[in-house]
């Protein structure tokens, strides 16, 4: 049985997709079914995708500095629609924003230099894979 389905998405207008693609591929090689949405996603598109795919986790990559606005919106729509799926955020995130994102209900924030192993482990933990 393959491991659960996860979504990797680029939120906002930012086109830096190197990290998102590397993470998506690493998770696929770790046995997950990974749906990669590509760039320029809106918060509601990401949630709609997670619903239609019945995903167990959402991974978001943002390097444009607009994470506070966009993740805030994402979490708001999730609450509104009664969807509760763990959200991980990666990208260029200044340390003080990190705590604010965690307060919004994000399950984890990962910056440049995070080993892939660490990301695979947290995804396994959050999706209940032993």
């Amino acid at each position: 049985m393959p491991k659960p389905k996860v979504i990797i998405a680029k939120l906002g207008l930012d086109g830096h997709d190197r990290g998102a693609k590397v993470i998506a591929r690493a998770l696929a090689e770790a046995g997950f079914e990974v749906v990669y949405t590509g760039i320029r996603q809106t918060p509601s598109q990401v949630i709609e995708t997670a619903i239609q795919e019945d995903a167990k986790l959402i991974g978001i990559s943002i390097l444009s500095g607009s994470h506070m606005e966009l993740i805030g919106e994402l979490m708001r729509i999730m609450r509104e629609r009664g969807v509760s799926i763990p959200v991980l955020v990666g990208g260029i995130i200044p340390p003080e924003d990190r705590d604010a994102l965690l307060k919004m209900g994000v399950a984890g924030v990962y910056g440049p230099g995070t080993p892939l192993r660490e990301i695979i482990d947290i995804v396994k933990k959050l999706t209940g894979v032993s």
Binding site: P2, A28, E29, G31, E33, V34, T37, Q45
Partner: peptide, 22 residues
């Protein structure tokens, strides 16, 4: 396709269709 080794899959076909998602 699923990987015959890990069972995982990189699913990228939605990329072109995401605008339809909503």
């Amino acid at each position: 396709p699923s990987s015959p080794f890990t069972g995982g899959s990189f699913m990228g076909n939605r990329i072109r269709m995401q605008e339809l998602t909503s």
